[in-house]
Write a protein that binds this DNA or RNA. Sequence first.
DNA 1: TGACATGGATTGAATTAAGCTATGGACAAG
DNA 2: CTTGTCCATAGCTTAATTCAATCCATGTCA
Lengths: 311, 311
Amino acid sequence: MTLTELRYIVAVARERHFGKAAKACHVSQPTLSVAIKKLEEELGVSIFERGSNEVSLSPVGERIVQQAQQALEAADNVKQVALHGKNQLAGPLRIGAIYTIGPYLYPELIPQLRKSAPEMPLVVEENYTSVLTEKLKQGELDIIVIALPYAEQSIVTQPLYDEPFVVLLPASHPLTARKSISSVHLEDENVLLLGRGHCFRDHVLEACPACIPKPGLIGDLPHTIEGSSLETIRHMVVSGLGITVLPCTAAGAHSYSQRLLTIRRFSSPIPHRTVALAWRASFPRPKVIDVINTAIRGCNLSCVKYVRGRK
Amino acid sequence: MTLTELRYIVAVARERHFGKAAKACHVSQPTLSVAIKKLEEELGVSIFERGSNEVSLSPVGERIVQQAQQALEAADNVKQVALHGKNQLAGPLRIGAIYTIGPYLYPELIPQLRKSAPEMPLVVEENYTSVLTEKLKQGELDIIVIALPYAEQSIVTQPLYDEPFVVLLPASHPLTARKSISSVHLEDENVLLLGRGHCFRDHVLEACPACIPKPGLIGDLPHTIEGSSLETIRHMVVSGLGITVLPCTAAGAHSYSQRLLTIRRFSSPIPHRTVALAWRASFPRPKVIDVINTAIRGCNLSCVKYVRGRK
DNA sequence: TGACATGGATTGAATTAAGCTATGGACAAG
DNA sequence: CTTGTCCATAGCTTAATTCAATCCATGTCA
């Protein structure tokens, strides 16, 4: 078995066409055909099913190609390691965070990283968990910050901190009279939610099942209003459209004074989420993980509880 | 770059000797020397430092070899996938658990797995976290059950359940009068601990810092008695040597009647541990993980709280 | 139905890479 | 100064890879 053969089967699996795959690999079609046949004989299974007018993957082939991709990635990483020399903290790092973390973590994290790894330029992105996951797996991102639970094949995760949720109220709201708020108090309130796809939306609904949006209108407005970001929701809370639930790191960073907005904590059991790092298991720069881990723990996120560190 | 070259550098890194490495690879010494030189030229770095009387790894070389090992493992897995054919649930699985989980989980888990994956013979082991980790990394185990926190390079973890701790008392003990017990109640008690190396020992000490063992003797016995397993500790509790803290799954499975032993829950905050699966990120049988996950969730562990599943 | 197009398999020659034996050269020990 | 160790180099052989040319099965359309 050679890396070349693995490249060939990955190409055919991608192109679904021997000729095109051969072109993509810069070899002739017979070369590729022979190489694949040789590999199939060595492995004792047929990877592709040559139909009359199409090439498809056999069930085993599917998994073989997946595994081959991993092997190729690992081999590529050998080159990367050699390229970047001994300093893992040199060279760019592509980092992603979900929408409900990025805006509140990055302003703390990035200055920290500039200090601890000045030779590591950062490419930074915000997106949904699903998009970040895809980009991470495709190698378009190196490390992402998401909320647990999170389990993906060949992705390593590392919990960072537990983040309690808080309630954001207009200052004039009756609930501001309470010192802490239970999820039952939210049942009759108009709780503004993020749109579908935001995992924080699901976290809130889990903590407050009664907040599940109902179809229909109240006056001109839909029964439940969905915001496209925590900041738009904050504006709507100010404007009196309703109240909302925020992760605590998002509670402080805003431009409204206490005369307009009030924050109240939850009474026990306090709903919360666990924020974690995730990276490809094959990511070849362990020190980068350590540095980011340390940097986040060094961030001034006063309301969170850091998870005990890596051993 | 070829897999053969990677095998060569891994061998030299292991043997620290070109000649011996060549023998281990079943090739002549010049073959190996040339191949390594070629790879070093391709990568543009020198992997080994040829000293007068010894071969050592350069700093970059160290990481290159590590990465090479990963690539070789991934390539091996291609063969494994082909070998076991389309059925990931066929072929033996080597599973490990720490001492404080295995005896209580296996009797539930193994019959479950026999049902859901009858063609998968199980090789089962119990050991300390550190030993299991080493065996997992070396490929001597496929999947292990440990307690969080757990973070190892290129190991994937998946939380399974939260397990509250309980207090085990002789039936005649004054604390049996209480419905629930707080850690402060343990301060003046003789709390029997597991020996060093058991992570559960550390969990107990974290929940009850006052229980940290003090040197010295009480009469003939050491001030703090350490047991080699939860079962030996249970015997000692029966015999009146002291009380102990157990994970709740270990509380029920014993041969003593309620007339001798009493179990009491903790009052809030209830100390607990999170039990998780861990496997090499390169482990090529994702369905096996799913099946074990499902099997454990199907176990009759009434006292635990299962963590939300994989998405 | 038959000419043609498509797409993978086969063939055989040319090239390249990987392997071996023999030898060279640096270094340390005696 | 000799000897032994150990990695590097040279020259040769053999095996593997690649390509162009060709074959063959299948599907399309007049």
